[in-house]
Amino acid sequence: MSLLRRAVCLSALCAMTACAGIPTKSFEFDALDAAEQPRPCLIVVNDDWVTAAEKNQFVNVDSDDLLRLEIPFPSAEIEITMAPVMVESGKVTRVPKTRKEARDYSGFMDDTRRLKLTDPKRQLFILARKSGSS
C-alpha cells in the first residue's frame, strides 16, 4: 500500500472516531409509590447530586409529569438514583444531597438502577415506603 493511501485511510479512521464521540440516549423518567400515586423525586445520574439539583432534575413536583433527560454513556452502564423528595405547595422543601438524606426526609425508600444504552426509553421507578412510615 502506498504511503499516500495509508495516510488517507488513517485520516478517515481518525475522523470516524472523532465523529462517533460519546453515545447518548434520551430517557423518560417517572416515579410512583406502591399505591400508584405520582411520587415527587430528584433524578440523579452517576451520583452527581450537585448537577441534578442545579439542572432541576425533578419529576412530579408541580403535577403528574415525567422528566426527559439526554444521557451520555461514557461507559457501558450509567447509574440512575431516584431520590424521593417532600413537596409543599408545589415546591420542594429540601433538596437531598445523599440517598440517606432523601430517605430520612421523605418517608420513602430511594431506588437505584443501572441503565444501558439499549434499555427501554421509558424508565418507571416504583418507590416503597420506609418501614415504619404510614
Partner: peptide
Amino acid sequence: SERIYVQATHPDYQP
C-alpha cells in the same frame, strides 16, 4: 430494546 423490565406493585406489598 435488549432488556425488558416487569414491575409489580400493590399498596400492601413491597414493589
